[in-house]
């Protein structure tokens, strides 16, 4: 999987919100890449910066108060942070598309499903006729497993169930064959039997269309089930990255370890759950030292004063923790991975 080319590269991204309380660095110098055709997960607890990361990539950070203050987002070697609003509008949908947690808020209640799908197509395919757009819309509804697509075109969002609306959103995101699909908590608002259907659909589409998927979730089960690689975020930073197999079997960062031990597993009963002490920090509340130090059972002096780097601990594994600094592999290996 690491032989696959990086199609989207996030490098040193910083996104802040400027509020009455000063600058809040919601995303604080993060790096990761999405490889061609893969399903990459981003996992973390609420407020760790997952949604701000995806909005930054899409050029949709609400501004003001938000602003990308540093770093670059390379899509096929073009820096998205440097594009004009107009250029960015062409990238959205065409190259990179996104679906959100609550499909109802991203569908317009006043227009029919068909109307909205066709509009999404015609923005990017200006030379297409209405007929062509309509056919494509119906084709997409069929693709995402919605029955009676013809009738559905005339329906309005409120007439659909949550699961159907999320399918429509996926169809809309995929109308122009984007290379990357960003899905921010796409199943969090859905029931578990419907979630299973949607995750299955996303996996199928990833395989059939070779669309790379960036799946954002707080659910480790969803990651294990759906993703090939995973990025773990904590307090606005990436704390660990690697193949799902490795991260679940040999997690390195104390936060990842704690998180994995905290989840109840439906297959067997643990006598007592492990729990990470303390609270999930508000972004910006910790500015010096390792962001996890206050909750970490391994913390030592240095952790309180210096912020560890993201150390490359194997050709595919990275960890932001001083305990793994001496396991860092040589720069040589690193270039092999990133090329």
């Amino acid at each position: 999987m690491s032989e696959r080319k990086a199609i989207l590269q996030v490098k040193g991204l910083r996104t802040s919100f400027f509020t009455d309380d000063g600058e809040i660095p919601a995303v604080d110098n993060i790096d990761f890449s999405v490889h061609e055709g893969e399903v990459l997960g981003i996992v973390g607890e609420s407020g760790c910066g997952k949604s701000v990361t995806s909005l930054s990539i899409m050029g949709l950070v609400p501004s003001p108060p938000g602003k990308i203050t540093g770093g670059e987002i390379l899509f096929e070697n073009q820096d998205l942070t440097k594009l004009s609003d107009k250029e960015m509008r062409m990238v959205r949908g065409n190259d990179v598309a996104m679906i959100f947690q609550e499909p109802m808020t991203s569908l317009n209640p006043l227009f029919s499903i068909g109307n909205q799908l066709m509009e999404a197509i015609l923005i990017h395919r200006k030379d297409w006729s209405k007929k062509q757009a309509k056919n494509r819309a119906i084709e997409m509804l069929n693709l995402v497993g919605l029955p009676r697509a013809d009738e559905l075109m005339k329906d309005y969002p409120h007439q659909l169930s949550g699961g159907m609306r999320q399918r429509v959103m996926i169809a809309m995101a995929l109308v122009c064959d984007p290379r990357v699909l960003i899905a921010d908590e796409p199943t969090t608002a859905l029931d578990v039997t419907i979630q299973a259907q949607i995750l299955q659909l996303m996996k199928d589409l990833n395989e059939r269309l070779n669309t790379a998927v960036l799946l954002i979730t707080h659910d480790l089960g969803v990651v294990a089930e759906t993703c090939e690689r995973v990025v773990v975020m904590y307090a606005g930073q990436v704390v660990e990255e690697g193949p799902v197999q490795t991260i679940f079997k040999d997690p390195q960062h104390p936060y990842t370890k704690g998180l994995l031990q905290s989840v109840p597993d439906m297959r067997f009963k643990k006598q007592r759950l492990y729990s990470i002490p303390g609270n999930v920090p508000k972004p910006g509340s910790i500015r010096t030292g390792c962001r996890f130090a206050a909750r970490c059972e391994f913390a030592f002096d240095k952790c309180l004063t210096e912020n560890p780097d993201l150390y490359q601990t194997s050709s595919v594994h990275k960890t932001r923790c001083f305990l793994y600094k001496n396991q860092e592999v040589s720069a040589n290996d690193r270039t092999l991975v990133e090329s």
């Binding site: 979630q195 089960g221 089930e225």
Partner: peptide, 9 residues
Amino acid sequence: AVPVPDPNF
């Protein structure tokens, strides 16, 4: 339907 936190499951 419940996703299990184990990629080998």
